[in-house]
Amino acid sequence: MNSSFANAQISNFEDPRLTLSTVEADWLIKTDKTERPQVGSSSATLLKAENELQFQGELAAIQGNEGLVGFALVEAPLPLDLSAYKYIEFYAKSKDPGVVYTLTLKDEQAQQDTGTLTFEQEFIVGTEWTKVKLPLSHFRAKIRGRLVDGFQLDLQRVRSLSFQINRSNQEAGSPIPLQFALDIGSQVYVTNQE
């Protein structure tokens, strides 16, 4: 085998994934308590371990207009153009395999008169490390937890990414308060690989 040809192949190889966010990003915690202290009671903490982000806490159940509400999220800034990619990919595990989490993206349209516009996709992971791959085309527009029409995620102007837990997404019989713990691998990627 021609060794110079093999070296040329290796040096020209490019990883098709782009790192979207890492443990070291400026993650910020928000809960119903921090956003609406007069009614909120969820709590959350964030630990940055060497190879994982540990998002954990206690999710409240607050009576809202459309049933029980309560949320906690960890958010990082993300000023990137993602239009060349099809998927977001990461590894995660949960203390409880039945807990529903949400990956949320915001773009330049976020500030609306009726509330903050987000683009969301739910996922569930097991208690062991699980690979999660979410199609960018499947993120759904929401304002205050409600689906809205007429908006499409602008992948050229994505500005933040968050991992979130919402009371309204959980099973009706889930504990009150709900203890949650989501561990996220050291990097979140975008990719085109199937």
Rank of each mutant, 00 (worst) to 15 (best):
M1F: 10
S186W: 11
A110Q: 15
D113R: 12
K131S: 08
V23G: 03
W27P: 07
G57C: 06
L78K: 12
Q38E: 15
Q38F: 13
L18T: 12
D183F: 08
F180E: 03
D96G: 12
N169R: 01
A72W: 06
F119C: 13
S41F: 00
K106T: 13
Q38P: 00
P135N: 04
Q170H: 01
T45Y: 04
I176C: 02
R157L: 08
F151S: 01
K142W: 01
G173H: 04
K48V: 06
L161M: 01
G145H: 01
E66T: 08
D15G: 03
Q164H: 04
D149T: 10
N169Q: 08
Y91M: 11
V190W: 07
Y91R: 14
E52V: 09
L155Y: 03
Y85D: 07
E58H: 05
V158K: 04
R17A: 15
V99E: 12
S43W: 03
Q121Y: 11
A6D: 10
P79K: 08
L68N: 02
Q56M: 09
L178W: 06
Q9E: 11
K33L: 14
A76G: 10
W129K: 00
E171P: 04
L103T: 14
L78A: 13
R144D: 13
G115N: 12
E35V: 12
V74M: 09
Y189T: 02
S43N: 11
S4R: 04
E194F: 04
S174W: 03
